[in-house]
């Protein structure tokens, strides 16, 4: 098995009583990188990660973690010490105090990063019971339990959800530090552009299976399109939407476009700019934009019907 990959999924199939089914094949997640997992709600992102972590009962599974079969990986306490997972559920008894969780973490892993403790500002809530914490404060405790031992493999499920902007920025910096300085590998389910910005690779999940898995740059340049044009149509515009869409179809270098809520999004290469501006002029459009595709665009497309 290659040391290049922290996780290798040859085959992973799950079926649930309500009829939903998930199938993930040939997924290789690189070591020492941040891999973002994106997709619409219910598409299978969390199911995929939890199945890799052995928290689901797959009908078929051929999964390697850090070069070991999944079952062997979890049998070893030493391996588990190199794993940190922040799950969607807040897993701890509500009556426990934050400082007790910190002590439990130390007892579990034997090591604890002061930087993680400080960056997540746990000192200010150390004496509070978990049931007295806000959602964001609970999330900080959850993240501390996943990150404070600087594990080799980290899985995060929407880590900055519920965090305020300042704390989210601290978290992003912390994750970048952990990858660059401690060679951690991070798998992160995300719906936030600023989380996706730090991802080296992106895997999109659509309807219970992998849709794409590329580097972030490849994802933008080759799958979505490096540039993004937008037209905001308004009532009383001299050209109707259908005419505009027909005109868009004639623009060269477009990779995809779609129309939603009075807004047309067009993705393609830089070369489409000339044709696009001609279209704007020709149809007298007043509200439009043109710029580089960013993480928000990736997330928008990944949660659209196109996946």
């Amino acid at each position: 098995m290659s040391q290049q990959y922290i996780i290798q999924v040859k085959q992973l199939a799950l079926a649930f009583e309500d009829g939903t089914a998930f199938s993930f094949n040939d997924i290789n997640i690189k070591r020492g990188k941040i891999t973002g997992i994106i997709g619409a709600n219910g598409s299978g992102k969390t199911t995929f990660v939890e199945a890799v972590l052995g928290l689901k009962n797959p009908s078929k599974a051929d999964v390697m973690i850090d070069g070991m079969a999944q079952k062997d990986f979890f049998t070893s306490m030493k391996n588990r010490k190199n794993l940190g997972s922040q799950l969607q559920v807040f897993a701890f008894s509500e009556q426990v105090k934050v400082n007790e969780m910190v002590k439990l973490h130390k007892a579990l892993y034997g090591t604890q990063s002061k930087r993680v403790y400080d960056d997540l500002s746990l000192a200010e809530i150390a004496n509070k019971r978990l049931d007295k914490l806000s959602g964001g404060q609970k999330q900080r405790v959850n993240l501390f339990m996943a990150l404070a031992h600087m594990p080799k493999l980290i899985t995060l499920d929407e880590p900055s959800s519920a965090l305020d902007k300042a704390m989210a920025e601290k978290l992003i910096d912390l994750l970048k530090y952990m990858v660059t300085e401690h060679q951690c590998s991070i798998i992160m389910i995300t719906h936030h552009p600023y989380e996706l910005d730090i991802c080296d690779e992106v895997m999109s999940v659509y309807a219970g299976t992998k849709a794409y898995h590329e580097t972030r740059d490849t994802f933008i340049n080759e799958i979505i399109g490096a540039y993004h044009a937008q037209i905001f149509t308004e009532e009383g515009e001299k050209n109707d939407k259908k005419t505009i869409e027909t005109a868009i179809d004639n623009i060269k270098h477009i990779k995809r476009h779609f129309h939603q809520n009075g807004q047309i999004d067009i993705y393609g290469s830089a070369e489409m700019e000339g044709d696009f501006l001609s279209l704007v002029k020709q149809h007298g459009l007043k509200s439009y934009s043109f710029g580089q595709t960013n993480s928000a665009d990736i997330l928008k497309i990944s949660t659209s019907n196109e996946g």
Partner: peptide, 15 residues
Amino acid sequence: QRAKGAFKAYHLYPL
């Protein structure tokens, strides 16, 4: 605790 998923974390701990 199990129904609300609390044991998932314990399953992943070195415990």
